[in-house]
């Protein structure tokens, strides 16, 4: 869990930085070039396979652990308390499932259409070369308030998952030290806030720009 989790965390950072191209006021040139690069670079292709594998492994492991832990606990307490755990840490499985659903939605909307339904994507010419106009597709999607809403929820869920997951991964890997753990913990919190704001910002800005 911790290893796949940390790998996915590193992916999130790259993903966010790349997507920030969407906000560049150049009519989508930078983003379309970035999309083209990501779709065709063989190294990226390899990494993306690893990514899909990690997501699956992370999810499957999570589900298995969730069920085995549930059965290890047996009967639950009649009186629940929130005094000894954070909301996020108690609900990692729920948050994870929501995130998985969100990933399917997200992939179905963009990745699937880009890859298997090219007719749905218009073409655009940049410097005399034809590219798929992924930017256009994004803008269209993010004009739909339902989709934007789903994205905001998805991203918030992700943020909460990270709130616990980031520092938890280090703890699982055996890294806990009175000096460094507070740094890891605050880094994790800052990271989850930044990721949430960063990913939430993109659909929100695009939506309001096109309103």
């Amino acid at each position: 869990m911790s290893l796949t989790g940390l790998f996915l965390i590193s992916f999130l950072l790259i993903h966010l930085l790349g997507n920030l191209a969407l906000l560049k006021p150049d009519g989508g040139v930078a983003f379309n070039l970035y999309t083209e690069f990501m779709s065709n670079n063989p190294l990226i292709q390899l990494v993306s396979k690893l990514l899909y594998f990690s997501i699956l492994l992370h999810a499957i492991q999570g589900i298995i652990i969730y069920f085995s832990n549930r059965s290890a606990k047996g009967q639950r307490y009649a009186v629940k308390t929130s005094k000894n755990t954070s909301f996020a840490s108690r609900n990692m499985a729920l948050l994870g499932t929501l995130i998985l659903a969100f990933i399917f939605l997200h992939m179905g909307d963009f990745w699937y259409n880009l890859k298997f339904n090219p007719e749905s994507i218009p073409m655009v010419t940049i410097d005399g070369v034809q590219y798929k106009d992924a930017y256009h597709k994004v803008v269209t999607s993010f004009s739909n308030p339902l989709i934007v809403g789903a994205y905001l929820i998805g991203v918030l869920t992700l943020g909460l998952h990270l709130w616990h997951g980031f520092q938890s991964a280090f703890q699982t890997l055996g890294l806990n030290h009175s000096k460094y753990t507070p740094i890891i913990q605050s880094t994790g919190r800052i990271f989850s806030v930044l990721i949430t704001i960063g990913f939430a910002m993109i659909p929100a800005i695009i939506f309001f720009k096109n309103m």
Partner: peptide, 15 residues
Amino acid sequence: EGFGKCSNTGACEVE
């Protein structure tokens, strides 16, 4: 013995 897996909720430390 059938104990569950740790998910680092930290409840143990608090209690």
